[in-house]
Structure formats: C-alpha cells, structure tokens
Design a protein around this nucleic acid. Sequence first.
DNA 1: GGCTCCGCTACTCG
DNA 2: TCACGAGTAGCGGAGCC
Length: 451
Amino acid sequence: MIQEKKIEIAQWLLDPDRGNTETLPYLSFNILEERLKHEGLWRVFSEVEVPLHPILEDMHKAGIKLQREKLEEMHKELFSKENILGSAIKKECSHLAPRVNINSPRQLGEILFSEPPRGLGITHENTSKTKSGGFSTDNETLTKVKDAHPIIPLILEYREVFKLRSTYLESFKSLMDETGRIHTTFIQDGAATGRLSSRNPNMQNIPSGIRSLFVPEKGYFFLSLDYSQIELRILASVTGDARMIDAFMHNKDIHVITAARVFHKDINAITKEERNFAKILNFGIIYGMGKDALSRLINVSRDEAEKMIRDYFNDFAHIKRWQEKLLDKAMQMGYVENELGRKRWLPGIVSQNKRVQNEARRAAVNMPIQGLGADILKLAMIRVAEILKAKKVWMKTVLPILTIHDELLFEVHNDILKEISGIIKGEMESIYELKVPLKVDVSSADNWGAL
DNA sequence: GGCTCCGCTACTCG
DNA sequence: TCACGAGTAGCGGAGCC
C-alpha cells in the first residue's frame, strides 16, 4: 500500500468530518502515526483500514457485469415513456407556460401552486416550504395532492422514470468496459462515521427495480450475505439494555417487542400497523429523532409522538441513560467514539445555536452505532479475504463484488457456492463479539434483482 | 456571450 | 425546523474571462 494512501486515511481518521483541522496535508507519516497513537486511533488504522485497502482495490478490479442488451432495451423503453409523460405534462399546463421546464422544481412549483392565471392554483397545506421560499414539489408534497389534478400523477411517474434513466442507466452505459463490467470506486476516507461510500457509479444506492440488470458470469452465481438488524443489535449491546438483549438472545421480533412496550399491549395483540410504528420508532431512536419528526412520519399528533418516545425510554431505560452519558462526555471531550476507538469530533455539540447543537447531538448518538456496524463489516471483509486467499480461490473462483453497509456480495463459481457460503457466513457471525448474537442471512441467485 | 463553480432541490440506497 | 450516513443530476445564480 502506497504511503500517500496511508497518509490520506490517517488524516481522515484524525478529522473524519474534514473541517476541524486545516493544514494536515503537509504532515509526514511519522507525525501522523504519533497523532493516531495519541488519539487511540492506531488500532483502527492498523487493524482495520490498512488491511482493508487492498480488498477494496480487488473489488474495484473485479467490477460487476451488466446485461448489455437488457440495459439498452430498458433504456429505450424508459426514454420513450419519459417523452410520452413529458408531452402529457406540458399539454396539461401549456395554457399557462408553453415553455415550462419540468425538471425545474421552481418553475413546476409556480405552475402547480400559484393562483390562476399564473398557475393551476392547486390547494395545499404547506406553502413555500423550501429554503429559498419557493413551493416544495417533492414526492411527499405531491403525493398529498395527487387527486387534485391529473397533472400530479403524471409528474410523479415522470420523475421516477427520469431518475432511472438519467442517473442510473445513462451512467451505466458510459462506465461499462469492453467486457460489460463496471468498476465502482469504494471511497475509504469519505464518510464521517467510518462507513464506506461508492462512486462512479455509486453502487450503494442502485434501485431494486433495476438490480436485475446485474448478472454473474456463466457458471457463476451471486452470493449475498447481509447482517440481520445489525444496528439494533449494536444498540442493544452497547447500551446493555436487558430487555432488548433478551429479545435478540431469544430471536424474538424486536419491533413487536417494542410495540408491546409503547402501546401497553400483549405481544400477541400487536397489529401490523403498530409493529410498523414501532419499527420507525426503533430506527428513529438510533437517529436521535424528536417528537416532530416522529409525528410527521407515523401521522399522529405531536403530543402522542412525545408520549411514545417517553414510554420508549421508560421501558428501555438503559438506552436513555447511555445517551445521556454519551452526550455528557461529548460536551466535555468534544468527540464521541465507538467500541474500537474510532472517533468523530463534534464541535457543534457546545454551540450556542440550538439548531447546530441539536444536529451535533443526533450525530453523536448515531455514530457509535453506525460506526461500529461499519467496523464489524470491515473486520469481516478482512477475515474472509484472508481465508479465501489461503484457499487459493480469492479473485479466481470467488470475486468480491460489492459492500453495502451491512451486506457483502460475491460472484462465486457454481461448484463451490455451498462450501463458500457456509465459510463466509460463519466468519461474519463470529468476527466480533456483542452481548447479542450476530445473525447473517444468506441468499444466492443468477441476477442481483433476485437476491 | 460563454464558461466554471456552487448551493439548492430532488431522488436513490442502507 | 422536520432522523443518521452517503452520491448524482439538473437548475439557476454568481463571478470570471
């Protein structure tokens, strides 16, 4: 691994948000090494990031194959659909603005929500929602008024089609090599929590509807292994909350358990909707969600949302205490850290500006969870690569293809699929010890969409 | 007049 | 103001030559 890369990673570990320090680029590696050791970051550097780097290079080299004909076909189809929808939309508002650009949210907002004669005067609750004072035209807003005018569903469908064509299919076409594979770049020193990201193209946000375009070579299968509910398991483990730990130890449905707690009902009486609310609440806790966000998301009053959060913390008392302790320390020390010592500095935590401070507080409670999830996956990648290299199959009959936050994707030769999937699953589940078991779900298929 | 840069809006994923 | 973490496309304003 080249020295320059090590320096970049060291700098990122010392300032993962890229903004707290100014002139690190001129520091020698020796000085960076001292700083890493001084900050307790040497372990993450030497045992995680350094050994991970060649694996990401191998993934880049391997790439992932697209079905060229199917890609062309889908592109053609979407392009024609896009044109038809575009014409229909323009027809609906041609009397107002014959030269409207549908891709301009500002123009679109004017046309939909201004009073006649300038616009269609569609009624809506929240006027001028955007930062710059314009009408918001996002999916949530338009869905609320989708029956008010025939133009609305057309716009929603146009947006969907346009996104698929322009952001995904178009870039696949231009990035595909002669063999039909595209080679994303995994960014090791980008995300502030320790996660990886991906670009050119971003393979970590491919819509499920077009994943079937990606296929293994003949004689191979895709093998996917994903950690089941890893962030909630980490939440249970690092907070030491006995009830949540118990739920995972006995393989119970964590969202049903939560629903029973906050709705004061028996586990067997929980409805689908209540389970879904609890699911949103569980994730919301990881993200530091407040009553406003919760009430908007599950469509209850702010008072009801506040009560649900209060009940949640009453029942999972360790979680509340863990958050308070963490925030105290963050304010004293200026940073938070995960179990491996990975750090994130959050100067906003002591800001006089309430909004800035609250942003930092949410990031603070999230980082030790999201960041440990990232490290567990990274450790697993390192271990799996080691074993598969020893078996002489790495980059031969087993290709590492993608890593998507809680999931690994491989392209594996038919003959060894079963053996390899057992090995990788075992390593992923035993790579890190939490107070609850790590659970990995395995699936394989002859295209990415079928996993 | 044409070019690049950047913030904003919107949408995709875990 | 609106829940954490990312990347990308297009629009449109600002500033430069």
